[in-house]
C-alpha cells in the first residue's frame, strides 16, 4: 500500500454513502443562518428584506412613498416625527453545497472525496428536510450537471445520485468555479464549500464565495496523511508527484522537513481562515478519519452551521 493510497471502495448506493442509518439520525437538525438572508420566495427563514414579515426589525425615517400602514403613530405622537416600522420578511433559505471534485480530493485514507460526499449528502438531506432550497455544484472533476432548486425531503434521492455519480479527477480552477456559483441569481443563503483547499487559488475562492453575499462555510477536508505525514508512513528519499499537476518535488523526509511541513500547513490554515473570516465566513477543518456523526453532531453544531 503506497502512501496515501485509498483503501476504501467507491460507494454505489446511498446507503453505502451514508452507512449505518446516518441519515435517519439527522431528522432533527437544521442549517443555521447567522444572518438574515434574502430568498427568492417566502419561506421559513428571516430575510434581510424588510417589509412584509411579522418580526419587527427597526425604525427608520419615513420617506415619501412608504406604506402609511407601517408608520408608527405612537412614535409620531411622542416625538412628532414620522418613522416607519421595518419588519423582517421571512423568506426561504438557500443552501449551496460546493463539492471540490479535483483529483487531489480522491486521495488519502479515509478518502477525502468520499468523506466530502458523505458530508454533503448529510448536509443536503438536513437542508431538504428543513424545507430549504438546495443547490449542489461540482468544482472540477467529472460531475453531473449542477443541481438547483431542490426542495423537500423527497429530493434526497437525486442528491445522492448526483453525489454517487461525481468523480474526482483532473484539476479544478477553484476560484473561477466558486465565483461562478456565488454570483448566481438564485438567492443568497448558506454556502458550504467542501474542499481540501490545497489549490493555490483556495484563498481566492473563499474570498469570492463570501463576496457574493453568501454566508460562507468552508469545510476543509484533510486526510491523516496530509495532517501528519510523518506519523502515517511518509519516510525516505521521495519524489512527490502531484496528482493534479505533472510537476514533482524531491524530498528527503526527516524531522526538520516534517516540522517545516507542519508549519506550512498551519500557515496555510491561518491564511485561509483569515480570508474566510474577513469575508464573514467560517472555516472548519475536518479530519477524514473522524466519525461523520462526530463531525455533524459535534464539530458543525458547535461551529454554528447546524443546530
Amino acid at each position: 500500500m503506497r502512501f496515501g493510497e485509498t483503501r476504501d471502495p467507491a460507494p454505489t448506493t446511498m446507503e453505502e454513502l451514508a452507512p449505518g442509518g446516518l441519515l435517519a439520525r439527522l431528522s432533527q437538525m437544521d442549517v443555521v443562518a447567522r444572518r438574515a438572508v434574502r430568498g427568492a420566495r417566502s419561506g421559513e427563514r428571516r430575510s434581510r428584506k424588510r417589509g412584509g414579515g411579522l418580526e419587527f426589525a427597526e425604525h427608520r425615517d419615513y420617506e415619501p412613498g412608504d406604506d402609511l400602514r407601517f408608520v408608527d403613530w405612537n412614535v409620531f405622537a411622542r416625538l412628532d416625527r414620522l418613522v416607519t416600522k421595518v419588519f423582517i420578511e421571512e423568506e426561504d433559505l438557500t443552501v449551496a453545497l460546493l463539492l471540490d471534485a479535483s483529483a487531489s480530493m480522491n486521495w488519502g485514507n479515509p478518502n477525502k472525496f468520499l468523506f466530502a460526499r458523505r458530508l454533503a449528502l448529510c448536509l443536503g438531506v438536513i437542508a431538504l428536510r428543513a424545507g430549504h432550497r438546495l443547490r449542489v455544484h461540482g468544482l472540477g472533476g467529472e460531475c453531473p450537471p449542477d443541481l438547483a432548486g431542490l426542495r423537500g425531503g423527497s429530493r434526497a434521492l437525486p442528491l445522492s445520485k448526483w453525489l454517487l455519480d461525481a468523480r474526482a479527477t483532473g484539476t479544478s480552477d477553484l476560484g473561477e468555479a466558486v465565483g461562478r456559483v456565488s454570483t448566481g441569481r438564485q438567492g443568497r443563503g448558506v454556502l458550504v464549500m467542501l474542499s481540501d483547499c490545497l489549490d493555490d487559488a483556495a484563498a481566492d475562492a473563499v474570498r469570492r464565495a463570501a463576496s457574493g453575499g453568501w454566508e460562507t462555510w468552508v469545510l476543509r477536508t484533510l486526510c491523516p496523511e496530509e495532517l501528519d505525514p510523518g506519523a502515517n508512513g511518509l519516510t525516505g528519499d521521495l519524489r512527490l508527484e502531484d496528482v493534479e499537476q505533472e510537476s514533482a518535488v524531491e524530498i528527503t523526509v526527516n524531522r526538520s522537513l516534517l516540522q517545516s511541513y507542519k508549519a506550512r500547513l498551519d500557515a496555510d490554515r491561518s491564511l485561509i481562515e483569515s480570508e474566510v473570516r474577513r469575508a464573514g465566513g467560517r472555516l472548519v477543518e475536518l479530519d477524514t478519519s473522524h466519525d461523520p456523526e462526530l463531525v455533524l453532531f459535534e464539530l458543525l453544531r458547535r461551529g454554528g452551521l447546524l443546530r
Partner: peptide
C-alpha cells in the same frame, strides 16, 4: 543523486513551500 521512490500526493504545494523554507 539519490534513488527516490515515486510517491503520488494530493498536492505538492505545501511540500515545495516547506523545502523552500528549509
Amino acid at each position: 543523486k539519490l534513488r527516490r521512490a515515486r510517491t503520488p500526493v494530493s498536492s505538492q504545494r505545501l511540500w515545495r513551500e516547506a523545502i523552500e523554507d528549509m
